[in-house]
Design a protein around this nucleic acid. Structure first.
Length: 273
DNA sequence: ATACAGGTCTTAA
DNA sequence: TTAAGACCTGTA
């Protein structure tokens, strides 16, 4: 177990920010997450964060995963004093971080996310992990499933994932898996590309449009200049930025601001009611 | 009941 | 180039 005192880190906010669909609340202050081949539980009390793993795993995997080398306070402090809306949003979601998640997993996750709600997205991803992923046990015997490889999904019939509750998105995932295993598009190449090139390349995949491509760029490739615009963000922009979001001012960290806004729109409203 | 979820693709003007 | 329609399914 590793305990750290962390600023701008709140596991509950990260869990609810809708970028990782394999993170859950376990108990009051404890959350679980599955990433790559690993399972982790995190307990947080105030600034004290306990990672239930050994130091080596923390240093070689989870530190990078949670983006703990990045100073988010710097981004929050860079917010325009005049912009009360963004200031409130960042105060509300001060502990959000942009995770470093697996590229293939984010492609599938955000293909599924379109025109969908977060509860069902989670269920869909659980389903395909249990159906096509591999069984694993963590140190204390806890069973979990890894995210399936592209090869496992590429061989399916285009409608096969309807059984996993994907609906019409089934063929998007299967065809995309095929494109990747056949080498039509290379994930390793995409990882080396700058933002705009990577986005263009991702949009060659069936079912990936501008919004989903931006989510993938932000959550897997760590391109902070990506600013995904979905229905919630569009509403917020119409209400608070009639002349457009001041992207120039937040050049290079638009995606971080997007997350504060998204979380504030999603969770802030829920708490008002 | 009807609209809407972290949209994209297809088809027609 | 733009705009309407279709698309799975669950929830409020």
């Amino acid at each position: 177990m590793i305990t750290k005192e962390l600023d701008c880190f709140n596991i509950a906010q990260i869990c609810d920010s809708g970028q990782c669909f394999r993170m859950r609340q376990k108990h009051d202050n404890t959350y679980s997450v599955i990433a790559g081949n690993e399972y982790l539980e995190v307990t947080q009390n105030g600034n004290q964060c306990t990672f239930h793993c050994d130091e080596r795993k923390y240093e070689t995997f989870w530190r990078e995963y949670f983006d703990l080398n990045t100073d988010y306070k710097k981004y929050i402090e860079s917010i325009d004093e005049q912009d009360q809306y963004l200031k409130k949003a960042s105060e509300f979601g001060f502990g959000i971080r942009i995770l470093n998640q697996d590229l293939w997993e984010m492609i599938v996750s955000f293909l599924i996310s379109q025109q969908n709600n977060i509860v069902r997205i989670r269920r869909c991803i659980d389903n395909i992990c249990e159906c096509y992923g591999e069984k694993r046990f963590d140190g204390s015997g806890k069973l979990y499933y890894t995210f399936p490889q592209a090869e496992a999904l590429a061989e399916l019939h285009e409608d096969a994932l309807k059984d996993s509750n994907l609906g019409y998105r089934s063929k998007y995932v299967v065809r995309t898996a095929k494109s990747l295993t056949e080498g039509e598009v290379s994930l390793e190449a995409i990882k080396q590309m700058p933002y705009k090139e990577a986005k263009t390349e991702l949009m060659k995949l069936y079912g990936i449009g501008e919004k989903v491509a931006d989510c993938i760029c932000l959550f897997a490739l760590h391109h902070f200049e990506a600013f995904p615009v979905d229905t919630h963000i569009r509403q917020a922009l119409e209400g608070h930025y009639p002349d457009g979001f001041p992207a120039e001012r937040y050049n290079g960290c638009e995606g971080v601001m997007q997350q504060y806004i998204f979380y504030y729109e999603l969770m802030g409203k829920k708490m008002n009611k």
